[in-house]
Amino acid sequence: MPEFFMVLAAADAVDAPTDVGKMIGGLVQYGVLGLVVTLFLTGTIVPKATVQALSLERDNWRDAHQKEHEAHQATLVQLAKAQTSADVATEQGRAMVKLLEDFGHRPDTPRST
Rank of each mutant, 00 (worst) to 15 (best):
Met96Val: 09
Gly21Ile: 01
Phe103Ala: 05
Val51Leu: 10
Gly93Lys: 08
Gly31Leu: 01
Glu70Ala: 09
Arg94Trp: 12
Val51Tyr: 10
Ser112Ala: 15
Ala13Pro: 07
Ala74Met: 00
Val32Glu: 04
Leu100Phe: 04
Gly43Ala: 01
Ala11Leu: 08
Leu39Cys: 05
Arg106Tyr: 08
Thr75Val: 09
Asp108Ala: 15
Ala95Trp: 05
Gly26Arg: 04
Tyr30Pro: 04
Leu39Arg: 00
His65Asn: 04
Gln52Val: 11
Asp19Met: 06
Pro47Gly: 05
Ala82Ser: 09
Met6Thr: 11
Ala49Gln: 11
His65Phe: 11
Lys48Asp: 13
Ala74Leu: 01
Gln52Arg: 11
Thr109Pro: 14
Asp63Cys: 11
Leu35Ala: 03
Arg111Tyr: 08
Met23Gly: 06
Ala82Met: 12
Ser112Cys: 14
Leu33Asp: 06
Thr50Ser: 07
Asp87His: 02
Arg111Val: 10
Glu68Tyr: 10
Ala86Tyr: 03
Gly21His: 04
Met23Phe: 15
Val7Pro: 06
Tyr30Leu: 08
Val46Phe: 10
Lys22Gly: 14
Ala49Arg: 07
Met23Asn: 08
Ala71Lys: 02
Pro110Trp: 13
Leu39Phe: 03
Glu91Ala: 07
Leu41Asp: 01
Thr18His: 10
Arg111His: 07
Gly31Met: 00
Val32Tyr: 06
Arg58His: 11
Ser112Pro: 13
Gly25Pro: 02
Pro110Gln: 13
Gln92Lys: 07
Asp102Trp: 08
Thr42Trp: 09
Gly34Asn: 00
Lys48Glu: 14
Val46Asn: 08
Val14Pro: 06
Glu68Leu: 15
Ala86Gly: 06
Pro107Ala: 11
Ser112Lys: 15
Glu57Asn: 04
Gln66Asn: 12
Asn60Tyr: 12
Glu101His: 02
Val51Ser: 09
Val77Ala: 06
Thr90Asp: 09
Pro110Ala: 14
Glu3Arg: 03
Val32Thr: 06
Glu101Gly: 02
His105Leu: 10
Leu76Pro: 00
Gln78His: 07
Ser85Phe: 12
Ser112Gln: 14
Val51Met: 09
Gly25Thr: 00
Met1Trp: 07
Asp108Leu: 13
Asp15Arg: 04
Thr75Tyr: 02
Gly43Met: 01
Gly26Pro: 04
Trp61Pro: 12
Val20Thr: 15
Val14Arg: 07
Glu101Ala: 01
Gln66Leu: 14
Lys81Pro: 05
Thr18Met: 14
Ala71Pro: 03
Gly26Asp: 07
Asp63Ile: 15
Asp12Gln: 14
His72Tyr: 11
Thr84Val: 05
Ala80Asp: 11
Arg94Val: 11
Met23Thr: 07
Leu56Arg: 08
Asp12Val: 14
Leu99Gly: 10
Met1Tyr: 12
Trp61Ser: 15
Asp108Val: 13
Thr18Asp: 12
Ala74Lys: 01
Val46Asp: 05
Gly25Asp: 08
Val7Ala: 13
Gly25Ala: 02
Val97Cys: 01
Leu79Cys: 07
